[in-house]
Design a protein around this nucleic acid. Sequence first.
DNA 1: ATTAGCACTCAATCCGATAGAGTGCTAACA
DNA 2: TGTTAGCACTCTATCGGATTGAGTGCTAAT
Lengths: 341, 341
Amino acid sequence: MDERKKKVLLAIVKDFISTAEPVGSRTIARKYQLGVSPATIRNEMADLEEMGYIEQPHTSAGRVPSDSGYRYYVDCLMEKQTLGEAEKEYIRQRFSKRIREIQDVINVSAELLSEMSNYTSLIMGPYQKSERIKQVALLPLATDKALLVAVSQSNAVSNYLLDIPPSLTEADLERITRVWNSRLKGVAMAEIGKEVLDDIYQELYAYRKVIQAIVDVLLGDGDQSAGGHISLSGALNIFNQPEFKDLDKVRGILELLESPDVIREILANSPETGLSIKIGGENQVEGINECSVVTATYVVDGELMGHIGILGPTRMDYAKTVTLVETMAQQLREVLSKLYE
Amino acid sequence: MDERKKKVLLAIVKDFISTAEPVGSRTIARKYQLGVSPATIRNEMADLEEMGYIEQPHTSAGRVPSDSGYRYYVDCLMEKQTLGEAEKEYIRQRFSKRIREIQDVINVSAELLSEMSNYTSLIMGPYQKSERIKQVALLPLATDKALLVAVSQSNAVSNYLLDIPPSLTEADLERITRVWNSRLKGVAMAEIGKEVLDDIYQELYAYRKVIQAIVDVLLGDGDQSAGGHISLSGALNIFNQPEFKDLDKVRGILELLESPDVIREILANSPETGLSIKIGGENQVEGINECSVVTATYVVDGELMGHIGILGPTRMDYAKTVTLVETMAQQLREVLSKLYE
DNA sequence: ATTAGCACTCAATCCGATAGAGTGCTAACA
DNA sequence: TGTTAGCACTCTATCGGATTGAGTGCTAAT
């Protein structure tokens, strides 16, 4: 892979990303100064095609990057980009209001990501398990039902209806709450292990069933199945992409995005740390083989809180998308840390 | 409007609803036994067109019902329909589980409506204002923040973050809660008028600011702007409609449906009681002039709780849709009444 | 009043010609 | 040996014209 081939590949990828049209040798020679004639470029292109980096939709069309072409671009050719001052200012401004609980932060982030990228943004989290309990309360609703209210460090509130033995009085509930709060304030959900519980059991042996129910509900899939809340924004941006001018394709994608489980799967197999870029067929999830996904995680206090990502066509503006995802993950870390202090 | 014209119009509407193709005189003569020749039907059709009930996409095409044509069909020609036993059973079965709080009921209803109609279902409610308060609680989160938890008669839980004066102690909060619950249990939100409040103010004069904040948040747009929660299901069903095989049309509708406010507007101007059918241009909302909306309200205990509706193309199966909406509104009334007892 | 017959209209479909973009190959050139 | 100009070739997209077929409106006969 000599220098000139790289330049040609870079030109093809860039041009195709911005025009969505197969790019020919003449175009490259004209728009990108390589100092060689179209014929030479054609030779290089033939080589690149043989290497699998580009392909031809049909004999007399220009070349289009293949998945591996994009991969090579992303790994070796792409120049880092940084957000403009105006964009940074816009982000700051959007984060400057309405931030009381974590869900506000998540929603704003999702909107920002999709607005600024023109693709679809996905955010998963915060994960119940990495949250610290700030407070719980049990409100009696009926003789056999109570409402469990759990507030996390980040002011996320969860409610669960609990079935309780009718014998429990209001005073009982208050006592459970009092003990629980005194022992478990600030403890991460995941750490509510047996040791901690034993402590409480000792004191509240009579109520062990209720305690167990509370633990189950807090740890388990009380709210959502594994993976926390899903926010999605800009799903309809896919209508902007010329490669999705086909009704069935659009429908397929939109149907996938309707399922939180699919979104969890899309986001889930990205690494714990750093950025992940999945290009076209690299995606495990069936049905988004013409899409790429850029994901990152956000971490607070050393705990993995969730994943964020952008989904767009394989012909996405990787440089910009990567910058956006990175910036936003960073923003999330900062804003959430403040919220947690 | 003689008898035969009605028959011809009915045939046109029915045929177009089921085939989505303009219907010609020959088709009518063949498929619907009117005992007359195509030529006669053509004459009737010319008359019907002059009356504005049908129109021609172009000279050599068949006829298509106009908005007024559908209107006449709905008002005068449509035969009532009733759900099959299998369908009723399916509804019963879907309602037989997971019903603990009102939102469960709403979600199941929305899914059922869209599944069974193949159109898009919209549900608004329950309205905060018609809910009765079962219980409130104030949990201290920080020195200047408290969580207000309000549980309604139907076990709907709402959470609000309140800013409170740092001077308030935990005991203060408990006292407010106790007085509030003893005075206002079972009172409808809308009835928290000045008289009731005066009563509380008297007892808790020192806390009047907090009380006022609570009232504001419960009554006002604490949660959503006027109109309660919005559930939507089956938005992608419009991909099934041949008249929406155009990307831009689909996009337009889907964009509208992304906005809760638009949905509120669509549902809002339907009458307090009974069924409403808005056909095409009869809809006030810009952008759904090629759609029809069938709506009804659900009422519990004499209180208007919310609106439900189905949105589909003007060429919708009105008979079936009406039956579905009516059935579901009835179901909602029943299930919710049980939930409230 | 109804109907058969017929001329007419118009969208949709198919077909062939054309234009244009782009390639690969060959031969010439530095 | 690498580069380039030239050229024949391929394939898609587009456009116009002919054809088809469904359906109408009108007229004249029943």
